[in-house]
C-alpha cells in the first residue's frame, strides 16, 4: 500500500488525509523548519497543503513545492506588500520562528486569518539586514605624491600621472 491514513486534530481540515509516505516525511521535515514538532500539527499541516491543492498523491518534490507555495501565499497575506519579493519564504520563516509561531499550533496557518497580535509581532520580526541600495561610485582620488618629481617624470616620459596601483 502506498498511502497511509493520518488522523489530524485540526478541525479546519479533513480528519483523514492520504499522502505518499515519502511526501509526508518531506512535508514533516519542511514544517519542522518552522518549529512544528508534534504529530498532530504535522499531519494537520500536511493535510492543509495537500488537500488545498487536491494533491494527495503528489511525490515529495511536488509536495514540498506545494508547501512552499502555500506558505508564501500565507506570508504574503500576513506580512503585507512591504515584505513581498524574492526571499519572502526565508524571511517569513525567520519571522515565524523568531515569534515562536509554532507554539500556537497548526491552526495558526490553517485558520482563515492570523490573529492581529501575531501579525503585528511577525511584521516587526521580519529580518531586514539592509534597506534598498542607492548605488553610488566613490571615485578614487588622485594624489600626486611628489608633484615636482611627477612634473619631471611626465616631462621626461610624456606620460599621464600615475598615483594608484588599483588603476
Amino acid at each position: 500500500m502506498d498511502s497511509v491514513t493520518t488522523l489530524t486534530a485540526c478541525p479546519s481540515v479533513p480528519s483523514t488525509v492520504w499522502a505518499v509516505p515519502r511526501s509526508r516525511a518531506a512535508l514533516d521535515t519542511f514544517f519542522r523548519g518552522f518549529g512544528f514538532t508534534t504529530e498532530a500539527d504535522l499531519s494537520a499541516l500536511a493535510a492543509w497543503v495537500l488537500d488545498g491543492y487536491g494533491a494527495q498523491g503528489a511525490q515529495p518534490p511536488a509536495a514540498v513545492a506545494l508547501a512552499r507555495a502555500r506558505m508564501e501565499t500565507w506570508f504574503a497575506s500576513v506580512l503585507g506588500m512591504e515584505h513581498a519579493g524574492p526571499g519572502l519564504l526565508a524571511r517569513g520563516r525567520a519571522a515565524f520562528v523568531l515569534c515562536d509561531g509554532a507554539n500556537r499550533g497548526a491552526r495558526l496557518l490553517t485558520r482563515a486569518s492570523a490573529p492581529e497580535d501575531f501579525v503585528k509581532a511577525a511584521r516587526a520580526a521580519v529580518p531586514v539586514p539592509a534597506p534598498a541600495q542607492v548605488s553610488a561610485v566613490m571615485p578614487e582620488q588622485q594624489l600626486v605624491l611628489w608633484p615636482f618629481g611627477e612634473l619631471l617624470r611626465r616631462w621626461w616620459r610624456g606620460v599621464s600621472p600615475d598615483v594608484s596601483i588599483s588603476r
Partner: peptide, 13 residues
C-alpha cells in the same frame, strides 16, 4: 531552528 531560519533569511536577503 531559530538561528537556522534567521541565518538563511539573512543570506537570501
Amino acid at each position: 531552528a531559530k538561528m537556522h531560519a534567521l541565518h538563511l533569511a539573512l543570506l537570501e536577503s
